[in-house]
Design a protein around this nucleic acid. Structure first.
Lengths: 178, 178
DNA sequence: ATCCCTTGGTTCAGTGATTGAACTCCGACG
DNA sequence: CGTCGGAGTTCAATCACTGAACCAAGGGAT
């Protein structure tokens, strides 16, 4: 019997969302896109099999979460507005993992660039209470982040200092295309 | 090679969370638990294969998201505090699906029981601005909910009128065990 | 023009996940 | 004791996923 990507006959928007982001590795790719990963190799740092990464990136472009500028071997990817609107989901998943599966404390801390306040469990700034636009959030290393491994991927190195979400991780930022 | 439930070597709390909730159907089961489903058959209404449902329920109990009271064929399941803390994730997934994949409008609308305000995209009440405790949220049918099918499952029928989250969907409520 | 390197992508045999239908187990009731 | 209903198990078939090997293409150096 066929095993589609869809949850047939589901009258629920959660099922619709899972049809887009529910496959293995997709949400991890999304996370890295928020961190500023743009090149195929930057997404590959997580260990995802290359055939799966190719498939997921194509699917995410088709679904309108990412847009691709240029083509192999020069293409790079960026989040669309539709993709960016998944930030609350990505953030709450990370917050929950920090709360329940981070014995050393959170691995990354997200900070409102405007006032230095940490983001709370629902993603609002704990200082000013605002829902912070993604571009105003810094991702910083937390106490639970493990020490660097030998031959650490440049993306991992870049994420060991505070970094603004959506800004490219490697190389200089290009002109905004918002 | 083994294909475990885990994302090995991931230094990310998102990966930890996905190891618990990332398998197919798990988040849909969680959603129904929030709606008040308690019995095996109430979860089965989504069409999930029974062997998978058994496996997922066992896994969720093992992970501490659900607790089981009694055993087959009398047992029923309820969310633990740990499971309840996944509400922001479940809610933001549904909100995103409503925004992007609900041509008829949202299929369900979540309302703050205390003041009637709808929940916004991050789950806060749009009237009073508070983050609403799960037990104070009503799930109500939205304009995008399709008309009832013949022989509709009692759970679907129950969800066609406003219903408080976490309250049992069928039969009378039992004493709170919170 | 050719060669090499790097990046991105494809293929494949093997393994595990998932599925729907059929069947089993067990408790409650008459 | 027999029946019914709820929960769970089994199984053949199919698909997802994997890691390694290989291929394609562009750019730079010679």
């Amino acid at each position: 019997m066929p095993l589609p990507r869809d949850y047939t006959a589901q009258q629920c928007s959660l099922a619709r969302t899972l049809e887009v982001v529910g496959e293995r590795w997709t949400l991890l790719i999304l996370r890295d896109a928020f961190y500023g990963a743009r090149r195929f190799g930057e997404f590959a740092r997580t260990g995802i099999p290359r055939a799966v990464l190719t498939d997921r990136l194509n699917h995410m472009v088709d679904a309108g979460l990412l847009e691709r500028v240029g083509s192999a071997p020069r293409g790079h990817y960026g989040l669309t507005a539709k993709g960016i609107s998944l930030w609350p989901t990505v953030y709450t998943l990370m917050a929950w993992g920090d709360e329940h599966y981070a014995p050393g404390g959170p691995r990354r801390i997200f900070v409102h660039a405007g006032d230095g306040g940490s983001l709370g469990p629902t993603g609002a700034c704990e200082l000013c209470g605002a829902v912070v636009p993604v571009g105003d959030i810094l991702v910083t290393p937390g106490p639970g982040l493990e020490p660097p491994a030998p031959d650490e991927h440049p993306v991992n190195v870049a994420l060991r200092s505070p970094h603004r979400l959506l800004e490219p991780l490697l190389g200089e930022p290009v002109a905004a295309e918002g």
